[in-house]
Design a protein around this nucleic acid. Structure first.
Lengths: 173, 173
DNA sequence: CGCATTTATCTTGACGTCAAGATAGGCGTA
DNA sequence: TACGCCTATCTTGACGTCAAGATAAATGCG
C-alpha cells in the first residue's frame, strides 16, 4: 500500500484521506496515480494552449495543421486520414476543417481518386503559420518536462508506454 | 535523446518519426512523454466512464456526488466548496447541480448562515447510489493500474508527484 | 450489367465547459 | 443607520465534441 506520510500532502492526498476516513473498506491507493494523471494532463493542456492562443489557434486547429505539415509534401490528406491521425469523429473533423477553411489556413479540393471525398491541403498561409509555431511549441514542450533529467524521462516514458499498451491494447500491438 | 529503436513503435512514435523527417532541426523528444500522457488520460477517462454510464451518470455528476459523500455527515456542502474541490467554474457547477437536482440525487436548501447562498446535500437516493458505485469504481480503478506492481506504482507516483508540482507550482506548495 | 452493400463526408441535436456579466445579499466604515 | 464594496450563485452565449442519421459515390456480387 502506497503511503504518503513522508511527502507534503497535495489536493489528491486530501481526497484520498477523506475516502480512507469515510470508507475504510475501500482500498483507494490507485486514486493517487489516477488523480495526478488527470491533473497533470489538464495543466499540460493549458501550458500548450498558451502557444496556440498566442497564434490565434486552439489545440484542435493546431492538431490538424500539424498533422498536415508533418505528412510532408504536398502537405495534403483526406479527411479520413486526418480522422485516423487525430482520433476524432467525422463530425468533429468537419467542424475543424470548416473553421480552418474560413480562416484561410487550409483548402478543400475534390479528391481526383474518389468522387465521394475531398483532399485537405495547407494553404501557403497555413504552412507558414504551422512552421513558425512548431519551433515555439517544441520549446514550450521542453519546458513542460524540464523537471526531469534524461534518465528520469526515459524511465517515465518506459512506464507510460507500458501503461498505454495496458489501457489501449487494440491500437498498441 | 530518448531512442525507441528497441521498442515496438506505437502511434506516437510514428508521429515523432514524421517530425524528425520533416523538421530535423527540432528536438521532439518530449513529444513522446506528452503524447502518451494525453492518450493514457483519454483511455483512463473512457475506462472510468464505463462504471459511471452503467449507473446513468457521467464523470461530472459522479464527481459532485463523490465529493459530497466523502465530506462525511451530513453529506452537504455549499456550491462554493464544491467548486473548490472539483476545480470547475461556477457556471459549470450550477449546470451540474441543476441536472443532479432534476434527477433527485441532490437537493438545494437555503444556507442558514448566508442568505446569498445555498447548501447542497445528498438525498437518500443520491447517497445510496454513490455508496454503491464507489465499490465498483474503486475496483475499476485497480484494474486500470494493475499492469504495475506495487514498487512500480510507487515509482510512477513519485515521478508524477514531482511533475504535478512542476506544472502547477501554485496549488502544490 | 444492375442492384445491394459499403464507404466518405456532412448534418443535426444534445452535452459539458468556460468567460463574462447579472443579481442579490452580506459586510465594513463613517 | 446608510452607503459602497465584496461575495455567492445563476444566466447567457459561444465553443468543441460526440452519436446517430443523411447523402451520395464506389464497389462487388450474382
Amino acid at each position: 500500500m502506497t503511503d504518503f506520510a513522508d511527502k507534503t500532502p497535495d489536493h489528491i492526498d486530501r481526497i484520498r484521506a477523506q475516502w480512507t476516513r469515510e470508507r475504510p473498506d475501500l482500498n483507494v491507493t490507485p486514486m493517487g496515480l489516477l488523480g495526478r494523471m488527470s491533473h497533470i494532463h489538464s495543466h499540460l493542456s493549458a501550458g500548450m494552449m498558451r502557444v496556440f492562443k498566442a497564434h490565434g489557434l486552439n489545440l484542435a486547429s493546431f492538431d490538424v495543421l500539424a498533422t498536415l505539415r508533418r505528412a510532408g509534401p504536398p502537405y495534403a490528406l483526406t479527411p479520413s486520414a486526418l480522422i485516423d491521425w487525430t482520433m476524432v469523429t467525422s463530425g468533429t473533423m468537419t467542424n475543424r476543417l470548416d473553421r480552418l477553411e474560413a480562416e484561410g489556413l487550409i483548402s478543400r479540393q475534390p479528391n481526383p481518386d474518389d468522387g465521394r471525398g475531398s483532399v485537405v491541403g495547407l494553404t501557403d498561409k497555413g504552412f507558414a503559420l504551422i512552421d513558425e509555431m512548431m519551433a515555439e511549441h517544441v520549446a514550450n514542450q521542453h519546458s513542460l518536462v524540464d523537471c526531469f533529467n534524461e534518465a528520469e524521462q526515459a524511465q517515465l516514458d518506459a512506464l507510460l508506454r507500458r501503461w498505454l499498451a495496458h489501457v489501449d491494447p487494440e491500437t498498441h500491438r
